[in-house]
Amino acid sequence: MSIKMMHHVCIQTEKYEESLEFYTKILGFELVKETENFHRRDFNTWLKLGTFMIELQTAKKGERLKQWSSLNEGIVHMCFLVHNIQEEFDRIRKLGYKNFKVKNGETIYKVEDGYLFKIKAPEGTEIEIRDSQV
Rank of each mutant, 00 (worst) to 15 (best):
I3H: 15
I3M: 09
K4S: 12
M5N: 11
M6A: 08
H7Y: 08
V9Q: 07
I11Y: 09
Q12E: 15
Q12G: 10
E17F: 06
S19A: 08
E21Q: 12
E21M: 09
F22D: 09
F22L: 06
Y23W: 15
T24R: 13
I26W: 08
L27Y: 08
L27E: 10
L27P: 05
L27C: 11
G28A: 10
V32Y: 03
E34V: 04
E34I: 05
T35P: 00
E36A: 06
F38I: 02
R41W: 01
R41C: 03
F43M: 14
T45G: 11
L47T: 01
L47E: 02
L49D: 00
G50M: 05
T51Q: 08
T51I: 02
F52W: 14
M53L: 04
M53Q: 09
Q57P: 01
T58K: 11
K60P: 04
K60T: 09
K61I: 13
K61A: 15
L65Q: 13
K66G: 14
K66Y: 14
Q67S: 15
W68N: 04
W68D: 02
S70P: 05
L71W: 08
E73W: 14
G74V: 07
G74H: 11
I75V: 12
V76T: 11
H77Q: 03
M78S: 06
M78R: 03
C79S: 13
C79Q: 06
F80G: 04
L81G: 01
H83S: 06
N84Y: 08
N84A: 11
N84E: 11
I85N: 01
I85M: 02
Q86W: 10
E88R: 02
F89W: 10
F89T: 00
R91Y: 05
Y97P: 03
Y97T: 08
K101C: 04
V102L: 06
N104S: 14
G105D: 12
G105M: 11
G105A: 10
T107W: 14
T107F: 07
Y109K: 12
K110V: 13
D113A: 15
F117W: 06
K118C: 06
I119S: 00
I119N: 02
I119M: 04
A121L: 05
A121K: 01
E123D: 10
I127R: 02
E128Y: 05
D131G: 06
D131A: 04
D131K: 02
V134C: 14
V134P: 13
